[in-house]
Design a protein around this nucleic acid. Sequence first.
DNA 1: CGTCGATGTTACCCGAGGTAACACCCTGGT
DNA 2: ACCAGGGTGTTACCTCGGGTAACATCGACG
Lengths: 211, 211
Amino acid sequence: MSREPRREQLLNAADRVIQREGPGASMNAIAAEAGITKPILYRHFGDRNGLIRALTERHTSGLLAAVRAALAEPLERRDRVEHVLDTYLAGIEARPQVYRLLTHPEPGDPSGAGNALAPALRQIAEEITRAVQSQIDLGADRDLLAEAWGRGITGMVLAAGDWWLESRPCSRTRMVQALADLLWGRLAAAADLPTAVLPTAPAEPTAPDAG
Amino acid sequence: MSREPRREQLLNAADRVIQREGPGASMNAIAAEAGITKPILYRHFGDRNGLIRALTERHTSGLLAAVRAALAEPLERRDRVEHVLDTYLAGIEARPQVYRLLTHPEPGDPSGAGNALAPALRQIAEEITRAVQSQIDLGADRDLLAEAWGRGITGMVLAAGDWWLESRPCSRTRMVQALADLLWGRLAAAADLPTAVLPTAPAEPTAPDAG
DNA sequence: CGTCGATGTTACCCGAGGTAACACCCTGGT
DNA sequence: ACCAGGGTGTTACCTCGGGTAACATCGACG
């Protein structure tokens, strides 16, 4: 049996274990599930990261392709956004344990499951939730929206701030503007670009077929 | 010397080590920095999580208080939002290593620093960035906005989706609506509530002072 | 003077990632 | 027929980090 099919079998086994025990599963456990011992895993995947990477690539290729397709769907912009959101949520809903692996490839503590936000950040999220609840009139959906938004805004600022801190693409005040603009609906308000899909190829002014 | 001051000293030492080596610092290293050995740390903090928790609480109390204050500032709503964003970014800018600890209390792999988004999610962020860049007219700030938004939206959906998956507060379609509304500027469009600050005490209709 | 509550130590356990050395079995070329 | 190579697998080990047990010390207080 050549390498590739065997690799697939091992990945299947790893999948089952992680499905069952979460992303903290040990290499021993995975090897046992596959009916073999550790060194074989290491021969195939180098180290634990390699295994995890292979596993996530396998699972995320589908989700990633789906999201990409959703982003390119020829819909009204709002509908397209909803379509992308729904695609993602449906994807993580379908396989929760795998999703954990997607978001937390590093083991971390095995007890607490589902911590996209670290405890300290969860406190911030709660503050935002409370502020929204007490300051803004959101009608009947008030509680749900406030909580979802509290989490969402916190996650947004976390991810964007992390990137900003790492690569410093601009001043702090500009970053503040960029995020505030996003929260302020600029995504909805901006005009469409003239359907040029290829990023490196600006629409040729002489091309007659795009009218 | 009673417990508390000693505790502070140990936390100071832990702080220095983490400042220097990042959140993956070992208990041995921390103990060495404090000039002592491991068991003392364990006596004071129970386990590694306890130490980290104490450390983060210490540092985040300031940031959390600042964010809370910013959220209560009597400003125009947009200005308040910007104020909160700026407060947070200034906080993480001031002490990057501590910020890492805030966002990634679990060690994880020591090589990669600054991964608010796991690799798989970073791919999604890039897809969004590309889509925004190629589909929406954002003027001169185009590149910056697209990238910041790509990260931000991904982080938002990650955090909100994680929460939704964990506690299932509503149907998937409703969650999609909640997030799309957030991205669509409903935060900006909604009306103010009549300055009732206490969450559990709805504004008394007979109170005359709130006019 | 004893003892309580801190301080501190050395030495160990355990589990997990990772590796070295060895053995087998099939296939194919000479 | 034979042996080399590339796959399969094994046992036994190393290292490092979190965590604990057992023991020694120092100062204060009734």
